[in-house]
Design a binder for these strands. Structure first.
Lengths: 343, 343
DNA sequence: GGGAACTGTTGACGCGCGTCAACGAGGCTT
DNA sequence: AAGCCTCGTTGACGCGCGTCAACAGTTCCC
């Protein structure tokens, strides 16, 4: 049986291998080098006619260049590793999805890496392995990278974005927003509620520190940190512990809306009046916090605006000339206190 | 200035290119072919001494094989694309994280792909592009793939897991659990609450259908579907609409815990007694549903047990001989009604 | 008219790896 | 001694691509 005639169809019939740049070159009647150049945007150096032929041929064959071949030739791949820290908020999915879309828009492919996946196998080892096999075009650090990991990546010739230390003081700002709101509502004492039982969370640390700094700067009593589990009895115990340090009324700035809700309902079960005895402000503006009664006071975040530093860093590093519209800092409009009924 | 002597250190000094199999071969005093064979597990064919030398050399150099080179030679990469459907539940992060870890354990790298990223650019195009550039070892479908996409992947020589249609009747089972619980609590009429304003969600459809089938089989009045937005006024309106179709008391099976909470508090604002007038059962056992008062009745899920079909499919397709302990169906223990105060 | 400068195009190499066919050495049989 | 098999090892090729140096063709200037 004679071998099937060279199958080249956009849809790729079963058995027909995918088109390569050789196929495109043949069909366009040019050399493979020309195809490569044209398809990589070296357009001015060629006849418009040639360019057109190549493009048409590529389209006709449904040509998609092989990531592997390109990576091998270039010495680096078109992947960008997104490092997601051990951080817990409901809208994390939005964040990842938004960033993935931005990355794809730049012609790269996002590979998300969770800083700490489980008990066994440190995230560091897994990350380093990833960097070495993948040789990605970059690492987008949402805050999960240790200094050592950053250096490792840099040494491996893999730029880490954003170039400054990742939190961008965003956590400082968030802590300030919460503390400032609480004080403006008349609370003279402030506490910060972290999530209990979580592995070290750099965001939480930074925000608690920011709240503490606010209190110090404003001459208020030092803020008290408390770890709150998302579970009724534990939350109640945490709140009781807090009551021993701070006499009501006081305000609690919470790591996220889940923590806030846990404290809110714990307070009611303990017979404390909200917001008179205890004020609670959450963080992130999760929809679930707005459907309960009383409606949670929180800090609403606009994911796209909050991601601006990351988009900026990506555009700066990989973007075309037209993608410089963003600024390197998150928009102040990214975060705003959403007044509710709990402060 | 003389070029630096061949830098080969595990940590990779700046400027020293990463070790390749050539380096390993040289250091071990064997050919590159041998290195490749040994490192791919062709152990019996070689002297134990040779094997040992190769392994030691690789370890000494911190050798990590290049994904690009391997992919190019093999004609397919070591990626597994995880297709995440347009589905909304709080613990989705857990699911993705768990699967990623399982995939890495098998020596592959997970690339998550969101079925629908945004308004512009259909997910299908992006997926197909991904399959063509990446030539992944497989696609793990959480339920977001259309039949056409599945066929496309198969034709491209890229196996789709799990082989059966993805939902594995898991949604049928979940709908049953909810409906059965409601009936056992004495509700003679049942409604199903989907998430409003979401693009088509196959999970939601399947579960609503399952609840409807339950009602029909049990001779109950047909279930009513209602779309609930996660926002107080909208939820209230949805509940009011429901009241026109069903006279209390009735039970509502909810798509997820957020929907359940929205309805729960909407009911209270409307002066309806929960659970006497309206029973509410959520889905997923999110911690946030357990800290509010009244505590939400819901279906608790054990992510690992629920992921079993996917782990099984992965092991079956790519796993070593020792990884067959799992069964192809999710464990019934994966999902259990968690009684609360709302039914 | 001969070289220089420029434009448009291409041949050829190498990236790192998997693998097939082939090889030498040693032991065995005929 | 010649042939055959097995065992352990390797040379060489190709995967698809980017890119450099070199090429033919044209225009220009002295």
């Amino acid at each position: 049986m004679p071998r099937q005639a060279e199958g080249r169809s956009p849809v790729g019939r079963p058995g027909s291998r995918p088109a390569t740049s050789v196929d495109v070159a043949k069909l366009a009647g040019v050399s493979r080098a020309t195809v490569s150049h044209v398809l990589n945007g070296q357009v001015e150096r060629f006849n418009t006619d040639t360019v057109e032929r190549v493009r048409r041929a590529a389209a006709a064959l449904g040509y998609v260049r092989s990531a592997a071949g390109r990576a091998l030739a270039l010495g680096r791949s078109d992947f960008i590793v997104v490092v997601v820290p051990n951080v817990t908020f409901i809208r994390l999915q939005d964040v990842v999805q938004t960033l993935s879309a931005d990355i794809e828009k730049l012609g790269f492919t996002a590979v998300v890496h969770f800083s700490v996946a489980g008990p066994e196998g440190t995230g560091t080892d897994r990350l380093r392995h990833l960097l070495e096999t993948l040789r990605p075009a970059g690492v987008l650090d949402l805050g999960g990278l240790t200094r050592a990991d950053r250096e490792f990546a840099a040494q491996a010739g893999c730029p880490v974005l954003p170039p400054d230390k990742p939190p961008f003081n965003v956590n400082e700002w968030l802590g300030f927003l919460q503390a400032d709101h609480l004080r403006s509502r008349g609370y003279a004492r402030i506490a910060y509620a972290l999530l209990a039982d979580e592995r070290d969370d750099s965001y939480a640390r930074a925000r608690a520190a920011s709240v503490a700094a606010f209190c110090a700067a404003e001459g208020m009593p030092p803020s008290v940190d408390v770890h709150v589990p998302i579970e009724p009895e534990g939350a109640q115990r945490a709140l009781e512990a807090l009551l021993e340090a701070h006499r009501p009324p006081f305000g609690v700035a919470c790591y996220n809306d889940k923590v806030a809700l846990a404290l809110l309902f714990a307070a009611r079960r303990l017979g404390l009046a909200v917001p008179d005895d205890v004020g609670v402000i959450g963080m992130e503006g999760a929809d679930v916090g707005q459907v309960v009664s009383p409606r949670l006071t929180t800090v609403r975040s606009d994911v796209r605006a909050a991601m601006r530093p990351f988009r900026y860093a990506l555009a700066q590093a990989y973007g075309g000339p037209a993608s410089r519209e963003d600024e390197p800092v998150f928009g102040k409009e990214a975060f705003a206190v959403l007044p509710g009924e709990t402060t």
